[in-house]
């Protein structure tokens, strides 16, 4: 009986550590008002859309390169510019609900003759006790007109992201 208890205890501890480890990769995103959460896509850890096609999505990725916030923001910016995204202002500092500082870049781009907006916000959470170095990437985009209307909800959702 005692051996069984010990085994159960060990297993519980391992599961707990694993849960803690996995839990560190988690985040919480409040679905903006007027948006519905989308499931079943491997690219994103969270994605939601409103009825007009404005989409907000979050990726939680391991920072395998151990790049800092500036690195990831600049690297993403370079890549997007190379793909034809036009910057709409400079990088903006943002802070999420967990107090994590991030950088937000905004772009415009024409797709099929339609002007679109695209925001990308990067948070980097350094490694810590039972936590891996992670990068949280929040993307938001949609037709310019409808996006502008949903802009307050999107900004609020980003600010309320807890990591």
């Amino acid at each position: 009986m005692r051996a069984m208890n010990l085994r159960t205890l060990t297993l519980s501890a391992v599961l707990c550590l694993g849960a803690l480890s996995q839990g560190c990769a988690s985040f919480h995103m409040n679905t903006p008002s007027g948006f519905a959460e989308l499931d079943g896509n491997d690219d994103f850890d969270y994605r939601a859309t409103n009825a007009e096609g404005v989409v907000v999505a979050v990726r939680s990725e391991r920072n395998a390169l151990h790049g800092n916030l500036e690195f990831w923001s600049r690297a993403i910016d370079e890549r997007l510019r190379g793909q034809g995204y036009v910057p709409d202002g400079d990088a903006r500092p943002v802070t999420n609900a967990s107090g994590l500082e991030g950088l937000q870049r905004r772009y415009v781009r024409d797709l099929g003759g339609r002007p679109l907006r695209y925001w990308i916000t990067v948070f980097r959470r350094p490694s810590g006790f039972l936590r891996r170095d992670r990068v949280f990437v929040v993307e938001a985009g949609g037709d310019r007109e409808v996006f502008d209307r949903a802009m307050p909800a999107v900004e609020r959702a980003i600010a309320e992201l807890s990591t």
């Binding site: 989308l38 079943g40 896509n41 690219d43 994605r47 859309t49 096609g53 989409v55 999505a57 990726r59 990725e61 395998a64 390169l65 690297a75 993403i76 370079e78 890549r79 997007l80 510019r81 190379g82 793909q83 995204y85 781009r109 797709l111 679109l116 695209y118 990308i120 990437v137 993307e139 938001a140 985009g141 949609g142």
Partner: peptide, 26 residues
């Protein structure tokens, strides 16, 4: 030609952009 886009050995990095974000069918 446009400046060469940065390439990183990170999968998600290559999937950024409006095309995947707005493709809500998947």
């Amino acid at each position: 030609p446009p400046r060469r886009a940065v390439e990183l050995p990170v999968e998600w990095f290559r999937r950024l952009g409006l095309e995947r974000l707005l493709n809500t069918r998947e």
